[in-house]
């Protein structure tokens, strides 16, 4: 987020300092030991809680995925990788492949639409104007709503000849009307619309925080230098938002792969079973847990995990590396 950084190392500084009233510095070994105490002390609690309550259950899920298990009693029928690659495995099920495709649409769509939209809104809402707080609240509200509410709400609005259709007709766009939730070719785009509606607020709040981190002095300096509002945004603000934007992209990407709630409540089981709107996560519940095929469901979970992991790795390697490097590599070991 900051721009240039001086390259004077701390070590140099330390030597350059006159020996003053400070007490003698402890030995290097003691400092390293202390550093490790701090590291462990600060990350320990988080790591333990995380390992016990998130990683351990995940490990079990991998274990279960190797079995054929109906959820009653303990798994006994070992099946190896059959849930993944066997004749009844996930990769052979066209509905699962449909789910993969749907996840891809949502991922691409979310990145392409929510980001620029939220960015534009954040830049606009970052300026002072009356009622700004209220506007921010209103835009954030969709994110706060629970998924049950979102599902019911949109079902009501998108009914045939319901509110949405009425509005469109009044705007003269009646010819666009179709079965928003029933037309199998359209429903995934309806899902994308609802997701955009709900999650742009999330992007917005991240960007607002990022903007708040940019010192006013920078933008004011640009203004003083004669830059227009747009130029200031383009050459100062947005670049400084860079790492926030990249973090948001990462989270949006992962969220798109894991999407469950909105799809579950806003589309009917029938539409999902035809592969028109399901995601990998809803497929996992529909075809795994709800059919008492717990082993199969866990296998889908593991597949989802592996895909997310690969995506995360690629993203970290090619995109986020810049942030991590920029912020840290110019530091000195100490």
């Amino acid at each position: 987020m900051t721009t240039a950084e001086p390259t004077v190392s701390l070590a140099d500084r330390a030597d350059a300092r006159p020996a003053g009233p400070r007490p003698a510095r402890s030995s290097r070994a003691a400092r390293t030991r202390r550093k490790w105490y701090e590291i462990i002390g600060l990350t320990g609690p988080a790591a333990i809680v995380f390992a016990v309550f998130v990683l351990a259950p995940m490990g079990f899920a991998v274990y279960y995925s190797l079995y054929r298990w109906s959820g009653y009693g303990w798994p006994t029928e070992f099946r190896g990788l059959e849930n993944y690659f066997g004749p009844y495995g996930a990769f052979r099920d066209p509905i699962f492949l449909d789910a993969l495709r749907n996840n891809g649409i949502i991922l691409a769509g979310s990145l392409a639409i929510q980001g620029p939209l939220a960015l534009a809104m954040a830049l606009l809402l970052n300026r002072r104007f009356r009622g700004r707080s209220v506007f921010r609240l209103l835009v954030f509200v969709p994110y706060v709503l629970s998924e049950v509410t979102v599902g019911i709400m949109w079902q009501l609005i998108l009914l045939r000849d319901g509110t949405a259709d009425t509005v469109l007709t009044n705007l003269g766009l009646g010819s666009l009307i179709t079965g928003w939730l029933a037309n199998l070719d359209v429903v995934i785009w309806t899902m994308l619309f609802i997701l955009t509606w709900k999650y742009t607020g999330f992007a917005l709040i991240l960007f607002l925080a990022g903007l708040a981190n940019i010192p006013n002095e920078l933008t004011e300096a640009a203004a003083i230098d004669g830059a227009s509002w747009w130029q200031t945004q383009r050459y100062v603000t947005i670049p400084m938002l860079g790492s926030t934007i990249r973090i948001w992209m990462f989270l949006s990407m992962i969220g798109s792969l894991q999407v469950f709630d909105v799809i579950w409540v806003a589309s009917t089981p029938a539409v999902r079973s035809l592969g028109a709107s399901n995601s990998m996560a809803t497929y996992m519940v529909d075809h795994g847990f709800n059919q008492r095929e717990w082993g199969y469901g866990n296998a889908v979970a593991v597949i989802l995990f592996v895909i997310s992991f690969i995506a995360a790795l690629l993203f970290q390697r090619f995109v986020l590396r810049r942030d991590v490097e920029g912020a840290l590599t110019r530091r000195v070991k100490h």
Partner: peptide, 8 residues
């Protein structure tokens, strides 16, 4: 009815 796939 039309759009029956979306009707619970």
């Amino acid at each position: 009815q039309p759009n029956f796939l979306a009707t619970p």
